[in-house]
Design a protein around this nucleic acid. Sequence first.
RNA 1: GCCCCCAUCGUCUAGUGGCCCAGGACGGGGCCCUCUCAAGGCCCAAACAGCGGUUCGAGUCCGCUUGGGGGCACCA
Length: 496
Amino acid sequence: MIDKPARVRFAPSPTGHMHLGSARTALYNYLLARQTGGQFILRIEDTDQKRYVPGAEKELIDGLHWLGLDYDEGPDVGGSFGPYRQTERRETYREHVQKLVDLGKAYPCFCTPERLEKVRQEQQQQKIRTHYDGFCRNLDPQEAAARIASGEKHVIRFKMPSEGTTTALDYIRGPITVENKLLDDSVLMKSDGWPTYHLAAMVDDHLMEITHVFRSSEWLGTFPLHANIVRAFGWEEPIWIHLSIFLKPSGKGKMSKREKAEAIKDGYSIFVKDLQDLGFIPEGLNNWAALMGWGAGETEDILTLPEMIEKFDLHHLNPSPAAINFTKLDYFNGAHIRMLALDDLAARIKPYFLRENYKVDDATLLKIVPLIRERLVTLDDCLPFAAWFFKETLTINPADLVAKNLDSAQSAQVARKIYAVLENLPNVSHAVAEAPMRALTENLGLSLGQVLGLLRVAVTGQMVSPPLFESMEIVGKSLVLERLRNAIDILEKMSV
RNA sequence: GCCCCCAUCGUCUAGUGGCCCAGGACGGGGCCCUCUCAAGGCCCAAACAGCGGUUCGAGUCCGCUUGGGGGCACCA
C-alpha cells in the first residue's frame, strides 16, 4: 500500500514513564511515515505545568531511539515546523485562540474553579450529565473585554454549537455522530495562559501539516469537540485514527497502578524502560506491540521492522480493546533473539554479566553465544545459562552430583572412571570427547543421562546447562579435570 | 446517571455476502528429536455472545438484547 507521503506525529506529554501504548502509537506513526516516504515527527505536549515530570522527555527520546523509531523532526533534531515543544509555542496558541474569539466561536469565562466544582456537584446529585452550564457563554463582549482589561482571571472556552449533531470520521470506525447539546463548552486556554490539549494539539497538527493522527481511543469522547475546533478555524481535518487501548492480561479494564508494580515481580512491565532492563529487545517488543491491534496477514507472525514497514496497512487496524499477553511477548522476544547475529547478541548480553560483576572476555563470550542463543527468552537469561563460565569457583550442591538411581559411592566410582577417560584424551573438545564418553557409558551399563548428568554438574555446577561437550570445549581440559577432581572429593566425602 | 466505542478459539488475530462444517500465532495437550534445558518438526483440543431481520445465501449487512471497554477537568 503506497500512498502519498504522510506527515505524522507522536505527541506524548512528559508526565511519566513511556509505556506500551505510547510505544505502539509511535511505532504505527513510524511505519506509516517510512512506508509512504513521509515524515515522522516528535512533539512534546508539555503545557500542563502541574503534571510536568523532569526527565520524562529524555526517557521518551531514549525510548524512541532504543526502539529504533527515529524521527525526522523533533525538539532535539529540529525541523522547519518547529518549535516542537508546546511550551515554546505559547504565542502561537494565544493568536489562534484570539482568532476564535474574534470569530465568535470562543468566549472568555470568568467562572471560578469553586463555582464550577459546585455546579458539578449539584449536577451529580441530580444525576444529570456533568457539564459547564454556560454561565459566561452569552456575556456582553464589551463587559467581558472590560473585565479582562481590569485583570480579572479568566479562561477561554469553545462555543460549541448548541443544536444539531456533529459527525466526525474515524478511519477504522467510520463516522461517529453525537448530538451537539451533549457537548461541552470546553476550556481552550487556561487562566494561567497555557492552552489545553484541545486547542494546542489542533493548532499544531494544522500548522505542522499533519496528515494522519494516531491517538488512543481514550480521545474518542472529545473527538467531536476536536473536529468542531478544526472546523471553526476553517481547516482541513487530518485522517483520524483512534487506536484501541490495552487491557490488563485478564482483559478486565486497564492496568491499575498497583498491577503495574506487581507485573515487575513476574519479570514484566508496561513501561519501555523496565522492559529494556528486563532483557527484552526492541525487535521483539516492536513485533509484539505491532500485532496488538493490527492484523498483519493470514500467517505472518515474526516480522522485522523493514517487513512491518512494507506490510503495514491502515485497513487492518483493529478497533477493539486488546488484552496484554506477556507470554506472547516472551515468544516474540525469544524468536528475535534467535535471529540476531552472534556478535550482536554477544554485545547485547555482555552488560548483564558485567552488571553482576563477572569478568567477561569477548573471545569466550563469542564462543558461548551459539550455545545459549536458542535458550534465551530474555537477554538476562544468559546469566542462569552461562554465568558459570565466568566463575572462578563453583558452588555445588552435593546432592546434584549423585547420578540418578545410584548412590554417592557409586557416583564417585563413575566420576573416577570419567576422569580416567578424559585425562587420556588430547583435549575435551566435542569431536574428541563424545565418542569415548558414550563408550564408557555403555561399558558401565549406565544411561547417558546418568553419566553426562554427573559430568554436567561437576563441570558447570548446575543441573541445567548449555550442551555439555560444547561447553567443555570452551572451558578446556585442565579446568574440566580440576572440577571433576573436586566433584570426586565431594562424592567421596558423602560416602564415608 | 449520561455519552461514545467494541464484540471470531483462554489470548492476539485472518475473514470486507458464497472460496469457512471458520485459517494463523501464542498458550495448553500428545508424539518425534535429544546429554539437561531449550530450539525445531508433526499431530490434537479450542471460537463466529444471543435473538430477530435483509438476502437464493450471513462470521461478514441492519436492529435489539447481553456482555465488555472508554470518557464525562482550567490533565493529556
